[in-house]
Amino acid sequence: MNKVYNNRAWWLILPMLLLVAFSAIIPLMTVVNYSVQDVFDAHTRFFTGTEWFKEMLNDPTLQAAVLRQFAFSLTVLAIEVPLGIGIALLMPKKGWQASAVLILVTMPLLIPWNVVGSIWQIFTRGDIGLMGWSLRELGYGYNITASPVDAWATIILMDVWHWTPLIALLCYSGLRSIPDAYYQAARIDRASKWAVFRYIQLPKLTNVLVIGVLLRFMHSFMIYAEPFVLTGGGPGSSTTFLSQSLTTMAIGQQDLGPSAAFSLIYFLIILLVTWVFYTAIMNMQKDDNKEA
């Protein structure tokens, strides 16, 4: 679309800008401020420069948390994206079944995050939980408080349960926007199911998938409430992700300087990954145009 050049458009942006600035810029400045100081009390503080950043980057527990975080995010993306697409393809398209399935599938998305943790805590406990009890009855010594493998598997299962619906919902909606004529033409062209998916459905899903993957990456990278309620980060620190390390440091230990520096590093990692992903996608689309 040809957009008109008009700087008065700023007036339309202004209210939004003020609000977001209030919620984003002021706090961010505070964080930056802390990150370069050592605060003893309200009146005593020293300028430390990049000291905290160096310390944080060399902290082995945080390095481990970062690795753990990446492992977690990539795992859930690898499961949730294909599964979500599959569910979207399976969801009925018409009638009351469509509404019913849509509501059922979306349900986990609208449950407060710590309640999600509680639901899974109740579900997986060995004594009163259906899943934990069943696994034990089947002879598997399931125990998320003692076995890191069990804890990991459970958190991933919980995340799949919680977030696959987002991918499914976005894809379902994307699929619904494909006109019938495309499917009809494909039948006339004797295209296989796979060819229909590969050449009609997937191309139309590219945009929603980019958004879905971005949102999922960002949220999985910020995950806090669900594992905190379910495992408390344990056993040991095997399921302690970045948000939890950060909150423990900032609120629990009141280490303002280091935690501020850590915050900024954390934020930058997310920005960087998202930016790389985004530009990669955009470049792919640009190349398409250049070929023309």
């Binding site: 984003a24 002021i26 706090p27 961010l28 505070t30 964080v31 802390y34 949102l215 960002m218 990278f221 910020m222 806090y224 970045l242 948000s243 939890q244 950060l246 909150t247 900032a250 609120i251 303002l256 935690s259 501020a260 915050s263 900024l264 954390y266 934020f267 997310i270 920005l271 998202t274």
Partner: peptide
């Protein structure tokens, strides 16, 4: 959208 809420906890509280 990408800012982890955990990053803003303390500044928000103070603000």
């Amino acid at each position: 959208l990408m800012a982890p809420p955990a990053v803003f906890l303390l500044p928000y509280f103070q603000l």
